[in-house]
């Protein structure tokens, strides 16, 4: 559990909005993630969680600093990285006219997985997310939760070493969210996969994450085990930490 698979050094991302205005989405973020860890990124909307994931997966280029994934610089060896990571985006769209199976298979095919292997993986993933019986239905008739399950299965079809999940249970019903969480736990504990997830659900963080990173206006204001962070902020739970940091309620000492 000591091999570092993600490392950022002074990672900064600035978006130019027009000629005069700049938005600092990430401000000298330093974080290390070890293989097999589940790390939750917390923060209010616009804190920089999604930007951090997008930089790590090569969708955005850092303005300053460095980011390494699996030991490779994201600005130099993104093809190597993309073969080994997967992303479930925040507003993950789904191809509504394709069936659940086709969504998984076609996506996996773009990773160069052989057809036979691809079908076997699709079978397995559809079983896990409980959609085997509906595999040949076009996704457009699915509920939001079912779609999310298809997307989770789709993001895992390439059997990535690192999975980036941007709010994976948003819009999923309680039972569906439980299925997704169990799946993520299994991925981490049994297959030693690294999971980076963003969420607003603090219970999810407490249940799943080995460590938590709290972002605010591009700054990584705290990182560590949930219990360490609670202790650091002298709070009873993560919710108190979160509310205190972003609303100023309560007294916190670092």
């Amino acid at each position: 559990m000591n091999e570092t698979v993600i490392r950022t050094e002074g990672l900064t991302k600035i978006f130019e909005q027009g000629k005069k205005r700049e938005v600092v989405a990430l401000n000298e973020v330093n974080i290390d993630v070890s293989r097999g860890e589940v790390v939750g990124l917390l923060g209010p909307n616009g804190a920089g969680k999604t930007t951090l994931i997008r930089v790590l997966i090569g969708l955005l280029t850092p303005t300053a600093g460095r980011a390494y994934v699996l030991g490779r610089d994201v600005t130099e060896e993104i093809d190597y990285i993309r073969e080994r990571v997967a992303l479930l985006p925040q507003e993950a769209g789904i191809y509504e006219r394709l069936t659940a199976r086709e969504n998984i298979v076609y996506y996996g095919g773009m990773y160069g997985i052989p057809e036979e292997e691809l079908q076997q993986r699709a079978d397995r993933l559809l079983d896990i997310v409980g959609l085997r019986e509906k595999e040949d239905y076009q996704v457009k008739g699915f509920s939001g939760g079912m779609k999310r399950k298809v997307l989770v299965a789709r993001s895992l079809v390439s059997e990535p070493e690192i999975v980036f999940l941007d709010e994976p249970t948003t819009g999923v019903d309680t039972i569906g969210a439980r299925v997704v969480r169990n799946l993520l736990k299994k991925l981490s504990s049994e297959q030693n996969r690294t999971i980076i997830l963003t969420t607003h659900d603090l219970n999810e963080v407490a249940e799943l994450c080995d460590r938590v990173g709290i972002l605010n206006e591009g700054h990584l204001v705290a990182v560590g085990k949930p219990s360490d962070i609670e202790e650091q902020f002298k709070a009873a739970n993560l919710e108190e930490v979160f509310v205190g940091l972003f609303t100023g309620e309560g007294v916190y000492e670092q």
């Binding site: 997966i57 993309r82 992303l87 985006p89 993950a92 769209g93 789904i94 773009m110």
Partner: peptide, 17 residues
């Protein structure tokens, strides 16, 4: 349309240029 329906982001991270 892919941008609007948020399918583009997942497509752009597959290992294809």
């Amino acid at each position: 349309g892919e941008r609007e329906k948020h399918t583009l982001e997942a497509l752009l991270v597959v290992p294809m240029s």
